[in-house]
Simulated scan of single mutants.
Amino acid sequence: MLITTLLFIATALAEIIGCYLPWLWLRQQGSPWLLIPAAASLALFAWLLTLHPAASGRIYAAYGGVYVVCALGWLWAVDGEPLQPTDWIGAGLALAGMGVIASGWR
């Protein structure tokens, strides 16, 4: 379970970085050289997806919950935005939903 969680976090960070760097280039007049690590990060993201336990909607839905939490962490750590109570509540709901989906009740 710990390895899967760490894999979800690494996948989310690779996706966020791969999208953030082109945003810096397009919106913040960053260097076009940012597109090289962005492409590498998105390639890493795609590769990391192949390491997940299964390529199923359930796995991707569970990953989505981790992505939400990582995106909020990015908002706080990189963008310098303080998290609002609604951010914490939404993250908790996303993780709770992820837990229900990942449990695979039948």
Rank of each mutant, 00 (worst) to 15 (best):
I17W: 14
A40C: 11
L48F: 08
G104C: 07
A71G: 08
A62S: 10
D79F: 05
G57R: 11
T50G: 12
L48W: 07
F8N: 05
L2Q: 08
T11D: 08
W47R: 07
V69W: 04
I16Q: 06
G104K: 04
G57D: 07
G104S: 01
Y60G: 00
A38I: 10
P85D: 10
G99F: 13
V69T: 09
I59R: 00
L26M: 14
R106F: 04
L34N: 06
G90H: 10
V100M: 10
A61E: 01
L13D: 06
L7Y: 01
R58F: 00
A54P: 06
A14G: 03
P32H: 14
L13N: 03
Y63M: 08
M1W: 04
H52M: 07
G73F: 12
L83Y: 04
W74M: 05
A96K: 07
I3Q: 13
I16L: 09
L7A: 03
C70G: 03
A61K: 08
T86S: 14
G99A: 14
R106G: 05
Y20K: 04
P82N: 11
T5D: 00
P82E: 10
L6K: 01
A10T: 09
E15N: 09
A96M: 10
A91Q: 06
I9M: 05
W76I: 02
L21D: 01
A71D: 02
A38F: 09
I36P: 11
S41G: 05
V66A: 05
P37K: 02
L44T: 10
L72M: 15
